[in-house]
Structure formats: structure tokens, C-alpha cells
Simulated assay, not measured.
Amino acid sequence: MDSVTELEQRCADAWPALVDEPLGQWRLRAADGFTGRANSALTTGDPGVPVPAALERVITFAAAHAIKPAAHVVVGSASESAVAGAGWRVDHDHPGGASSYVLTGALSEFACPKSEGVAVLPLPSPEWWNLTAQDNPTAAQRHVLGSGHVVGFGEVRREGVVVAAVRGAVVGDLLHIARLAVVESARRTGAARALMGALAAWGLERGATRCALQVAEHNEPALRLYASLGCVEHHQYRYWVPA
């Protein structure tokens, strides 16, 4: 099993920000405000300078890229203690929730052949964009969701309409799964499970053996789905901001 630092770094590689600058082992990320993960400093490892000085760099970087200064901090880590000691606080006002779970699982546990209407495509369709982002995605959305070395865009079509979508990105032997969305009329009909099974099979074909998912703590339907697929908690992280 990856260490927390290794897994967080792989997830960051799979979710490319528009700007990603190293600060020692930290990563300063910006993407015009699209998602907390792509617009926060990943604080795993040693920043190479005292943490208060590193956090000042986070604030300066955020101002230069017109985003809110934020730190992505693993719960219970040495970084969390240091960030708290520098006077920062948990961002309870974060739109997606301050805290998230990182789940991992074996793809072989839920991979299945594609059923009718289910596909994993090399390019996102307009309907895929509409369901996972918006009709006319911004440059930041296109970069974060649309770029990567090995990326697949899963969708479920019923009567010609996309009713479920998901993004998968392979980094080494890890399939990073994100942006799962199902229209309300198709929920609890097996669409999400069929889509996840097809994406897992797609990842296995490309050398991945396991998956990682980052899920907001309040997203109980998603947590129940992933638990039923054999995914378990690896660790948690929270967003911190200047007090």
C-alpha cells in the first residue's frame, strides 16, 4: 500500500492544475478556482523552509493567481499540527465541505464487461461536459478534467441521452476516479455501478490494479456506493485557510 504522501502525490498528478509549482515537497496549485484540489497547496512532505514561511508563500502564490489561499492537509499529519500552529484554521465554509475521505480499492473487485449504452471514451462528449462541469467548460475545466497521459471519459447513454458520467486517469498502477455524476431520473437504477465496472475494466486494460477516490465526507450516497464496491478508507484530508 502507498504511504499517504505517495498516494496524495499520485492523486495530484492525476488531477492536473493549470499551475503546479514545487515548494520543497509541497505543491502550489492554481486553476482559476475550479475545485479545491487544483487550487490549494498540497502539504505532504517537507516544504524545505519553516512551515510559517511556506504558508506565506502559499498566500503570495494565491494572490498572484487570483485564488483563495488554501492548504490541502492530511488529517493527523505533522503538517496539520504545523499549519494549526501557524495560526491557520479549518475552512468550514469550503463549498465542497472542509473534509474528504481518500478511498482505495482493487479494480478486480468490481470490474465488469461494458453493458449496452456504457462506454469509456478517449475524448469527452459535449454531453459528458454538460453533466460533469457545464455546457461551455472554461479553460481551467478543460485542463483539469480533459488533460492527462491516460485519461478515460465514461458515460452511460439511455435512449441517446447521457444519464451518468465519470472521469478516470491512470497514473502508474493507480486509477484515479473522479467526477461521478448521475442525473436524478437515473439514480438507483444501476447506472453508476455499471459505469464504475466499465471504468475499472478500462483501467485494468491500461495497467492499473487499484483505484483511488476523493469523496467529501457529507456525500453519503457516493460513500455507500464505493463501500459496496470494496473501497475502504486510506486517510482523510481537510482544507485550511489563514485565520
Rank of each mutant, 00 (worst) to 15 (best):
Q141L: 03
W129N: 03
V118R: 00
N130Q: 14
T104K: 09
V74I: 15
F153S: 02
E56A: 13
A106G: 14
A53K: 15
H65C: 07
G45F: 08
P52S: 11
V162Q: 01
S108P: 07
V58P: 06
A64P: 03
L107Y: 03
N136L: 14
S108G: 15
D93G: 14
T43E: 08
R37L: 00
V156L: 01
T35C: 03
S147E: 15
A54S: 08
E155W: 00
V90E: 10
V144H: 07
A140H: 06
V51I: 14
S77R: 08
A111E: 11
A119K: 06
A70E: 03
P47D: 09
E116G: 10
L123Y: 08
H94I: 01
T35R: 04
A119L: 07
P52H: 10
F61Q: 13
G154W: 00
P69K: 11
E127S: 12
G168F: 06
V102F: 10
T104E: 13
A38L: 02
A53G: 05
L131I: 12
H65K: 11
A111T: 13
S77H: 10
A54G: 07
L55I: 09
V73I: 13
L103Q: 08
L121A: 13
S115E: 15
L107W: 05
W88I: 02
A86C: 09
L145F: 01
R57Q: 08
P124E: 01
S77I: 08
H65D: 11
G117N: 10
A84V: 05
V163Q: 04
T138R: 15
G96K: 09
G148I: 02
I67A: 05
H65Y: 14
T104R: 12
E109S: 15
V74K: 04
T43M: 10
V83F: 06
S79E: 07
L42E: 02
I67W: 03
H94Y: 05
W128A: 04
H92M: 12
G97D: 08
H92P: 04
G45L: 04
H149G: 07
V102A: 08
T35G: 04
L145K: 00
V74D: 08
V75W: 05
I59D: 11
G117Y: 07
R37Y: 02
T138M: 12
A98G: 12
G160D: 15
G85A: 11
V118N: 03
P50K: 06
V163W: 00
P95F: 09
G117I: 01
L103W: 00
N130C: 09
E159T: 12
V166A: 01
P113Y: 13
C112W: 12
A64V: 09
A53L: 13
